[in-house]
Design a protein around this nucleic acid. Sequence first.
DNA 1: GCCGTTTTCGGCCCGACTGTTTTCAGTCG
Length: 567
Amino acid sequence: MDNNSIASTLKLTATLLELHDENVFKIKAIQSASNAVENATELLGQMNVEQLSALPYLGKSIVSKIVEINTTGTTAELTELLQITPAGVVEMLNIKGIGAKKVRTIWKELQVETIADLLAACDENKVAALKGFGEKTQDTIKQNILYAQSNAHFLLYAQAEVIAAELLTLIEKNSAVLQVAISGELKRKLEVIETIALVIATANQSEIAKMLANLDFLQEDIQSSGPFTWRGRLKPSNTYVEVHITSQDQFQSTVYLQTAAPAHLTSKLDNGKTVFQTLYNTEVKEELELFQKMQLPYIAPELREGLIEFELVKNNPNYQLLKTEDLRGVLHNHSKYSDGANTVEEMAMRCMELGYEYFGIADHSKSGNFYNGGMYEDKVVAQHKEIDELNKKLFPFKIFKGIEVDILADGALDYSDDVMATFDYVVASIHANLKMNIEKATARTIKAIEHPSTTILGHASGRLLLKREGFPLDYKKVIDACAANEVGIEINANPMRLDMDWRHVIYALEKGILISINPDAHSLAGLEDMKYGVNVGRKAGLSKEMTLNAMNGAQIQEYFLQRKARK
DNA sequence: GCCGTTTTCGGCCCGACTGTTTTCAGTCG
């Protein structure tokens, strides 16, 4: 059992105990234990009782729980708690904006036990009438349920990519399949996926239909399926699946037409016809021949959104989008100094293995100390000392002293200017006080951008894809402020963030702003997320030249020095 | 339920904000 699974089992236990009004200190103890497990570097599943007991926050009772989780996957206590709690009530615990106590009130006072009934209770104003609730809380509950329902069948790109690859492997085994490819949103590398689309070339349609019917994780929607298109849902996420069945000769054109966004397909070409009209039923061997027919230079799949691609390739037929291998270093990462799972040295060594020339550590600043272990000033000093030593040891590999500094509620940064000046570079991000109107959020962000120490604006909107909408921003004003202050913009490569959204990065690139692809890695594994940031950067037309961390070690060191001297 | 100790009990407890109150409980990061 991995640490995250143990931690989430403990966390669920704590939440359910809170729901059932148990002792608050017992609950807090389990929550602290859950946090400790989540942040532990060693694998708890491989430890014995003595080793577990030596860890902080793990006492006799919790150690026995962890042993139980390791052997059975759960605990008797959790099983019992789940038995006495309706499944719908457990689901309610995931609604943002209400916690266990409010869920308990809803359950006990209104006898509401399902999400559907809760929604109905909101519509009947019963929730607002509860003590401690009101109109706004009721609205929040309703909005959050509707938001979750509307997103229920979506997958993050990173999840869909894995499922689609497995699907592809299964399909390829069938002898009637001449060729198969991923198309649609996945091939365009959209940040969230509503439909997993594939194209199969075959001479035997009925065999393909038979094969799809036999895959037990797919549920066909007979109504919307036809002889050339199989439509259905993927179990259990309910994500749409579309399989387009075509001939070998029309395979390339079908993949193209099933990949590009409608706005791309309806764009007029120089021949007076649309892309769709030009390519429909076209028979070619190679994808490049399709571009010859359109009299266009090659357009990468990520760009086929009908936004910037035609202008881009017409003005510069040899335009090169950023590639993962263009990246020379990794900025914005966390270590054990705040909420990372690994030491600075472990993270740096992994970056060396991955072929990077430099590594920037950007742990959390002090205001987040309680929930993310953000660093008070003395820790900053200690970390800088350690980095100086590591830089001697690992030379010529370079570790930069960065910080992910919190943008406070009023837009100020989280350290005094003296402390701010000790960093090589600064990623400024908002983590708390997320409920803001567009005016406040924009003013707060711009104030941080104007701070002379700020180098990069971190995850601009604070969104968590499919979970939480970001706060609203006037992107034109924010991006203009970055341009005026020579502040770079992060594309946070964590698959749940991919923030700033690529649609706004298009304007940032127009303004000549450097983009930094940052994994926001909290562990060694997190360093592998860079590719997701590259995907969405490419959607915005990002090139190597416009990417901050495509600079080599010497160039970026010079860049940081110049930025600091500019103050 | 964990921790620390003047050690087997008593204390544990961030800060800002929201929305509900009319002084503060609940939620979040």
